[in-house]
């Protein structure tokens, strides 16, 4: 019993992290039809941003709890600085082109980001310790968990609900949904598509950077963090169905719990359990668990 509880809890924590990152990926795909390879690079930038912002605000004499806010600020700063550069400066010239071609463009952006990040921040590790010590430790079952890690579950829920609310309950969100369904008709009706695209991409970058920022206290922020993030978050959105927010949530949960199960019971399989899950899901649901209905084109 205790074991099952631990597996579920560990899986849930891992899933929260996955979900925050995958949410941005699935949102960008949903609106812009771009599977963004550079997502991992933006994640890494978020981590570096937090590593700069947290000590910066601490240096200004801000109280300790402000470090949590500082990570939000860092993620927002990354989004404001980088999103227009990539979307307005590059991606918009390729809309309507082959998905694969755009995938390659984002791959090129990823390669460039990787070295630019290294040039700016060097190879030496950065650490952000403060935020993780803020929320204390909690005894769950027979083990100790760090309050911060558990709080990530809450953050994931807030992000998910926030994006859902933004899309379904606000004016701009509803316009975005219209653009997703019918970009040309929306444009004809006077919607400024470019603005919607930039906004959606910006939110996607923000979520990637937020994932990185809130992971930074758990890791050593240094080059090489971005690659492993990409493939797992790709797997999550594929399992869930591209462009689907509940899909990303369920996908993250499945992957998280499957991985936790593997660590306890099948450690030898941990390296490919995510891919096994992906193959299994795709065999039964060829387009992922949550698929928007599409018209057949004749």
């Amino acid at each position: 019993m205790d074991l099952i509880f631990t597996i579920l809890l560990d899986g849930l924590i891992y899933a929260s992290w996955l979900f925050i990152v995958a949410l941005g990926l699935t949102l960008v795909f949903g609106v812009l039809k771009i599977l963004n390879f550079a997502h991992g690079g933006l994640y890494a930038l978020g981590a570096y941003g937090a590593a700069i912002a947290v000590p910066f605000f601490a240096g200004l004499g801000m109280p300790e709890w402000f470090s949590l806010l500082a990570m939000f600020i860092a993620a927002a700063a990354v989004a404001i600085l980088i999103a227009p550069l990539i979307e307005r400066g590059l991606l918009r010239y390729f809309y309507g082109r082959d998905e694969v071609l755009i995938l390659l463009i984002t791959y090129a952006v990823f390669l460039i980001l990787e070295d630019v990040t290294k040039m700016i921040f060097g190879v030496n590790p950065y650490y952000v310790f403060e935020p993780r010590n803020l929320l204390g430790n909690v005894e769950m079952g027979s083990l100790f968990y760090v309050g911060y890690d558990l709080a990530l579950i809450g953050l994931a829920i807030v992000c998910g609900l926030g994006v859902w609310f933004g899309l379904n309950r606000t004016r701009i969100g509803k316009i975005t949904l219209a653009v997703i369904k019918e970009p040309e008709v929306s444009q004809a009706m006077g919607v400024n598509i470019a603005r919607i695209y930039l906004l959606a991409f910006g939110v996607g970058v923000f979520l990637a950077a937020l994932g990185g920022a809130f992971t930074s206290p758990l890791i050593s922020v240094q080059p090489g963090n971005s690659v492993s993030v990409i493939v797992v978050s790709f797997a999550v959105v594929i399992i869930g169905g591209l462009g689907s927010i509940p899909g990303a949530a369920i996908g993250a949960l499945i992957v998280g719990i499957a991985r936790a199960f593997a660590v306890y019971e099948l450690p030898e399989a941990e390296i490919f359990i995510i891919y096994l899950v992906m193959v299994a899901v795709l065999i039964f649901r060829p387009e992922g668990l949550f698929t928007p209905i599409k018209a057949r084109k004749i």
Binding site: I7, D10, I13, Y14, R259, V263, E270
Partner: peptide, 11 residues
């Protein structure tokens, strides 16, 4: 045996 570069070791 966590994957190389896993980054997350909570489990």
């Amino acid at each position: 045996f966590p994957a190389f570069g896993a980054g997350q070791y909570g489990t």
